[in-house]
């Protein structure tokens, strides 16, 4: 990552499938990975539903894009901040979310969790550190 890298935050506040925002938002993240910027994702409000385990679209004939979140680590998108209050409001806990990991190249390629559950204050601080915030 160059010194000139900007901090990008992708804010996800929509559930998957009901609208296309989650899917097309994810496409931006994947393309953006090629630009070598300092990237993170935030999951707030209904956005937390994107990370729910066990998504199966077979019977609804839609494209199941949930496996793509597992690939994010390979794209060096390793900071997925999940708003604790949004999870709780929706009756979800960390165990309900996909098990997403990345290999930390600075730590002997140890596998580490990408998902970090954060408080409102932590999330507010993170937002203030960004250069570019993109919303879906």
């Amino acid at each position: 990552m160059s010194d000139a890298a900007k901090k990008f935050m992708y804010v996800n506040r929509r559930a998957p499938y009901g609208t296309v925002y989650a899917l097309e938002g994810l496409e931006v993240v994947l393309i953006g990975a090629a630009f070598d910027q300092d990237v993170c994702m935030a999951f707030i409000d209904d956005g937390v539903f994107q990370l729910k385990k066990g998504q199966d679209t077979k019977d609804s004939n839609m494209k199941n894009f949930s496996p793509t979140y597992r690939a994010l680590g390979d794209y060096e998108v390793t900071k997925l901040y999940v708003d604790k209050e949004s999870l709780e409001q929706r009756g979800l806990g960390e165990d309900d979310l996909m098990d997403l990991t990345y290999e930390d190249e600075d730590d002997d390629y140890n596998e580490k969790p990408s998902i970090r559950i954060v408080s409102r204050d932590e999330l507010a601080d993170l937002m203030e550190q960004q250069d570019v915030i993109l919303n879906y």
């Binding site: 900007k6 990008f8 496409e27 931006v28 393309i31 090629a34 630009f35 910027q37």
Partner: peptide
């Protein structure tokens, strides 16, 4: 392409 979106952000 979508790269144009990231690029303009940069």
């Amino acid at each position: 392409g979508l790269g144009q979106l990231i690029e303009m952000g940069i």
